[in-house]
Design a protein around this nucleic acid. Structure first.
Length: 264
DNA sequence: ATGGCTGGTAGAACCAGA
């Protein structure tokens, strides 16, 4: 009998503040595994009870005070794997696990990179590029069937942003970031599952700013969140969901969840 | 009109997100 595995990724912008919509998402969509970014909570204060109550008893954390933080939450057993500090500054931006079938699942929160797209004027932009460079060197060596998901903070394609022209100088869509992301993708032959299921130039966004009073007016979105798979894993991807309605839920995250279903 | 808002933490004329 064929079986399926569904994996979700969501930049939640505080897992504690967002508890009601996390519960709604898990109840309505029930992925097997949920990868969260920007949990904004130290591991000791993580809301384990919320997830246990919903049937998610396997949780692997990499949190820190105040900012950042990632968590991988599952109904099926997980084996904790490596956690990388690709920025080399102690921030909690990655956690890796192994799934029962041997796949690796990497949950990553790439740095935003500040405002100015120049590493001389803005050290955060340099850190973002260095993070991607270290990821690329890791990815080049990777042999195992793997899935990497999360908030990559880069919208690579013209159809990944509401205005290619107006965002060319805006961090997240600059040519230097797009080139760095392309190198990372090429280093393992990663399949971009979002564009596998919804090819360019179709519109595909995962983030809308909080600053607009109504996020749907003008639809000024960007595709910052991604799900990538090794070529052999991508062959088992059978469906992909982009859950835009979650952007209109009560006290929403500025990012929406993505879900991919795999045949296993 | 891509920063107009948001959350965490301190108790800010804060920081960070993107």
């Amino acid at each position: 009998m064929a079986d399926t595995l569904s994996i979700a990724t969501w930049n939640i912008n505080s897992v504690r503040f967002r508890a009601p919509i996390v519960e709604r998402f898990l109840t309505e969509h029930a992925p097997d595994i949920l990868c969260l970014q920007e949990t904004k909570v130290v591991d000791d204060a993580f809301p384990h009870d919320l997830f246990h109550r919903l049937g998610y008893r396997h949780i692997v954390l990499n949190g820190q005070p105040m900012h950042h933080g990632v968590a991988t939450i599952s109904r099926i057993p997980l084996a904790e794997d490596l956690r990388h500090d690709w920025q080399d500054n102690g921030e909690a931006r990655h956690i890796g696990v192994r799934l029962p079938n041997g796949w690796r699942l990497e949950n990553v929160y790439v740095p935003a990179g500040g405002d100015v797209p120049d590493r001389e004027q803005n050290p955060k932009f340099g850190q973002k590029l260095d993070f991607l460079g270290r990821m690329t060197r890791w990815s080049e060596q990777l042999k195992d069937p793997s899935i990497i998901v999360g908030d990559f903070n880069i919208a690579p394609l013209e159809s990944d942003v509401w205005s290619h022209k107006q965002l060319l100088d805006v961090v997240s869509h600059t040519p230097i970031e797009v080139a760095a992301l392309a190198q990372l993708q090429q280093s393992h032959g990663w399949v971009d599952l979002g564009r596998h299921f919804i090819p360019a130039p179709n519109r595909l966004y995962t983030w809308w700013s909080y600053r607009a009073k109504d996020w749907t007016v003008g639809d000024r979105g960007r595709r910052l969140d991604h799900m990538w798979a090794s070529p052999e894993v991508a062959r088992d991807a059978i469906a992909h969901h982009v859950l835009e309605p979650c952007r209109s839920w009560e006290k929403p995250s500025d990012h929406i969840p993505l879900v991919t279903e795999f045949r296993i």
